[in-house]
């Protein structure tokens, strides 16, 4: 029973991180109709930046002075940096290509993926970077006769808050209405006086922020390593294929399904864990090509 509860908690932890990544990917597609292949690499960059900041000199000074609170305050810097990177990428690299067919978007974001991967290799080298001090100083809580890291539960809470916050933001705020209007009919949005270019930068930056936040929250639990971005991109794609690209609810349900299957897979059928995920994605594509929550 204890094992079962811990496995559920583990899959909720994965689901929270995956949701952050996939929701960003989905938001960007929903508003701009761009499939951002570099999204996973932005997540990885967020992880590296956060680990570097928390584990670096500033981090040591802050955690020396403020303890855990100082380190936790530094953690989201990765997300903020990635949002800024996004706000830079959209107008310079993506905007000139909106009028072109989709394959150009794929090409440029794939190129960006390669550049980011190499940039990370150059900046951070091959050694894994971690912000494990946060995880250590948070300690663990007993579940049955076992101990479970408290930090994992914090991440689950962050995922939940992010889901609720994003929902509120998209469906209940003025900017959310503008975002949805632009995603549905950008011409008409412009005719009603909305600066579509500005909405695009903001949407892209928010999507990147989500990816960076995913990286930031994961790095106290798992070190940032080369290649983590591509792995995350593949899983995020499975999530949005199952849930429906462009749908927030889809990203949430897809993230839950993928992490539950993955956790069960690692426990019961480790050899074919990923294959089962792809099979589920294929089945969804065959039966409901737009995903569980997507619209044609």
């Amino acid at each position: 029973m204890t094992i079962f509860i811990i496995q559920i908690l583990n899959s909720l932890f994965y689901a929270a991180v995956l949701f952050l990544i996939a929701a960003g990917l989905s938001l960007i597609y929903g508003v701009m109709r761009i499939v951002n292949l570099a999204h996973g690499s932005l997540y990885a960059l967020g992880a590296y930046v956060s680990a570097w900041v928390v584990g670096g000199a500033v981090g040591h000074a802050m955690s020396g002075a403020l303890g855990l609170a100082g380190a936790l305050l530094l953690l989201p810097i990765g997300a903020v940096v990635i949002a800024a990177v996004g706000a830079l990428i959209e107008p310079t690299l993506l905007r000139p290509l909106y009028r072109r067919p989709e394959e150009y978007h794929l090409l440029i974001t794939f190129g960006l993926l390669m550049i980011l991967e190499d940039a990370m290799k150059l900046l951070f080298g091959g050694t894994p970077l971690s912000a494990g001090s946060i995880m250590d100083s948070m300690g663990s809580i007993p579940i049955g006769r076992l101990l479970y890291p408290t930090y994992n539960l914090v991440v689950v809470a962050i995922g939940l808050i992010a889901a609720l916050g994003l929902w509120w933001f998209i469906y209940r705020t003025r900017f959310g209405v503008i975002l949805r209007a632009t995603s549905q009919d950008r011409r008409m949005a412009a005719a009603l006086g909305l600066n579509v270019g500005r909405v695009y930068v903001q949407a892209f930056a928010i999507g990147c922020f989500m990816a960076g936040l995913g990286g930031a929250v994961v790095v106290p639990a798992q070190a940032a390593v080369l290649g983590m971005g591509v792995e995350a991109l593949v899983l995020a794609f499975v999530v949005v294929v199952i849930g429906g690209l462009g749908s927030l609810e889809g990203a949430l349900v897809g993230a839950l399904i993928v992490s539950l299957v993955r956790t069960a897979g690692i426990q019961f059928f480790p050899e074919i864990e990923l294959a089962v995920l792809y099979l589920i994605a294929t089945a969804v594509l065959l039966i409901r090509p737009t995903g569980l929550f997507g619209r044609a």
Partner: peptide, 17 residues
């Protein structure tokens, strides 16, 4: 050009803002 997934109220809100 009525936004299909927005309510009529939201459609009107945008231009009122």
């Amino acid at each position: 050009g009525v936004f299909p997934d927005l309510s009529v109220g939201e459609n009107l809100m945008i231009s009122r803002w």
